[in-house]
């Protein structure tokens, strides 16, 4: 197992880092020459070069961070609401849970296409509804207007991944002790107070884990953006940027530099999370 993991994870990663220090191109990987930090940052003839000077790269960093911040917050909020509703004893609950699982089971590409169709500027249902309700005066180009594109990506992502959040939180809610709630009811405490004083503190560890997982996953987003808003720097994420350099522009060195930067960003976040979560886990082990 370790050998397999080394072969498919550690080795390619090491090669990527190496490529990022060379001038490799996709057509001829073997001819790569070592160029040091040139792909990251270089100063030549009075001008700066490299990924770190590329405004498109910084744009993609900004896009990714906004995307992560907004969509993970929305997913957490909506996921929590969904989990609480799923916890309540209502008729047809299995049916509701099945409906909630649906977006999760759908391939991301399919959901990207579906939202592309719903948000279509001329024939999309969303524009049609908004027009007939009178909220907008003319059709909006959700997937082409620079101001709206990131919003469209976020909507599609929230739809797709809220179920994941809801299920994790539901699992946490199921483990809560009942006697606290009984006591609270006997004392006649308002349900909202109960939620903020009992439920929320108790599921906090699970909530943090779920948020971190989603955030790390959202940081590397690629497929949704690639399909829903192709080739637009207004929504380009760090992964999309790196792949474009690597494959479309065939510049393996430069693209590898970008992916290495993304890798270290995520590694840093993961390490921080592990260090912060250690005290809570130490209690259990």
């Amino acid at each position: 197992m370790l050998v397999a993991l080394l072969a498919v994870a550690a080795w390619p990663l090491a090669r990527t880092v190496w490529f990022s220090l060379t001038d490799a191109t996709l057509a001829d990987l073997g001819a790569a020459r070592f160029v040091g930090w040139d792909n990251y940052l270089a100063y030549r003839d009075g001008e700066w070069f490299g990924v770190l000077t590329d405004p498109v790269w910084w744009r993609s960093v900004r896009n990714t961070l906004w995307f992560v911040l907004i969509s993970v917050s929305l997913e957490t909020l909506l996921g929590l609401i969904t989990a609480l509703v799923l916890l309540a004893r209502i008729p047809a609950r299995p049916l509701l849970q099945a409906a909630v699982l649906l977006p999760w089971a759908i391939p991301t590409i399919v959901s990207a296409k579906m939202w592309g169709w719903l948000l279509h500027d001329q024939f999309g249902l969303v524009n049609d509804i908004l027009l007939s309700v009178g909220l907008i005066a003319r059709p909006l180009a959700w997937t082409a207007d620079p101001d709206l594109m990131l919003g469209a990506v976020i909507v599609a992502d929230v739809w797709k991944t809220t179920p994941f959040m809801a299920l994790l939180l539901l699992a946490a809610l199921h483990t809560l002790p009942r006697d606290c709630y009984e006591a609270a009811r006997v004392d006649g405490i308002h349900p909202v107070t109960v939620f903020f004083r009992i439920t929320l503190p108790l599921i906090r560890p699970a909530l943090i884990v779920a948020v971190v997982f989603r955030a790390l996953d959202a940081l590397r987003i690629f497929d949704l953006i690639y399909v829903l808003t192709p080739n637009s720097e207004y929504t380009m994420s760090m992964s999309v940027y790196a792949r474009q350099q690597l494959v479309d522009f065939q510049d393996v060195g430069y693209g590898s530099a970008a992916s290495t930067l993304l890798f270290f960003t995520i590694a840093l976040c993961t390490t921080l999370f592990l260090m912060l979560s250690r005290p809570t886990q130490g209690g259990k082990a």
Binding site: P12, A242, G255, S256, F263, I266
Partner: peptide, 24 residues
């Protein structure tokens, strides 16, 4: 265990060029 968990959080694009070379 933590490393294994970390690998599952790998951005796929970070191994793209290395993997491409390996597969070829």
């Amino acid at each position: 265990m933590m490393t294994i968990l970390g690998v599952s959080m790998f951005p796929q694009v970070a191994v793209l060029s290395g993997m491409f070379e390996l597969i070829r």
